[in-house]
Amino acid sequence: MSRARPFPAAATLGILALSACTGPQSALDPAGEDAAEIAGLFWQMLAGAAVIWCLVLGGSVLASWRGRSLWQVATALKVILWAGAVFPTVVLAGLLIHGLRLMPGLRATESDLRIEVVGERFWWRVIYHRDGAPPVTSANEIRLPAGATVEFILSSPDVIHSFWIPPLGGKTDLIPGRTTRQVLRPTKPGVYRGACAEFCGASHALMALTAEVMTPDDFARWLQAEAGPAAVTAGPGPDAFLRHGCAACHTVRGTEANALVGPDLTHLGSRHTVGAGILANSPAAIARFVAHADTLKPEIRMPSYAMLPETELRLLADWLASLR
């Protein structure tokens, strides 16, 4: 029987751990200036903590090894004073000043784009404000132009949520009765994942968000398209939507459906996910969500429509998926 070899095992584990540093929802793989500052802070603090950890452990090993013969009491008291009180105070003061210096940038006053995000239970209402044109409403997905300074205006009608897209920046709470702000400066085009970072109810963990950073030209084209009405506004799909009462809660611009209780579905087919990040977007996923909403997302306000005949469900899902 061969003996266990600790080094290759440790190396494998280390490489596995490093692979966790990347991905669409990693704060250690920044795609924006703010996240890069936070990641920098993390690595600096990790390095500093590692040095201090070695010093402290080295000190305790030395003390237990040499015992009372190491220092006179008066010297030991001096070591406690300098290493135990003065040094931590200086380190903390340095970190505090460094952190405070980063803060005004998180609240920059000049922005190229303003996006209002309302945290609902358990989805995100997203409103793009445009100069000289009406705002564009969407849900559960945020698209951003790379290189722009984007100001988010955050609020909540029900409970405290928290808005966090780790590759783009830090987290900011959405607090009922208050308006909070966050500024993000995305740099690297790509598709990222955000999440609600403050427990808000049974489906808190199912309240995700797709953030797609696009080139400025692609973004302008996309916003223009997003502002338009739905691609198909008449036919059996919209008829089924109105017949089954979906319009009591949802908006599909271009049809009679204009309610504001649930997410705007005008361009549902163009989104990456269904149900605020829980299912990859497809007609089958939409049908499954409509039929089993409260099983997929406990405590959601949308009732399940499992009683609908299969043909009706498919009609609805195919139409919604076609709204690109």
């Binding site: 003061a93 803060m103 005004p104 609240r107 702000r181």
Partner: peptide
């Protein structure tokens, strides 16, 4: 006194850096 002095300075530091009420 030493602790309180550090506390007072740390509490006052944000006022040096924060630029507005947001």
């Amino acid at each position: 006194s030493c602790l309180s002095l550090v506390g007072v300075v740390f509490v006052a530091l944000p006022a040096l850096f924060i630029a507005d009420c947001r």
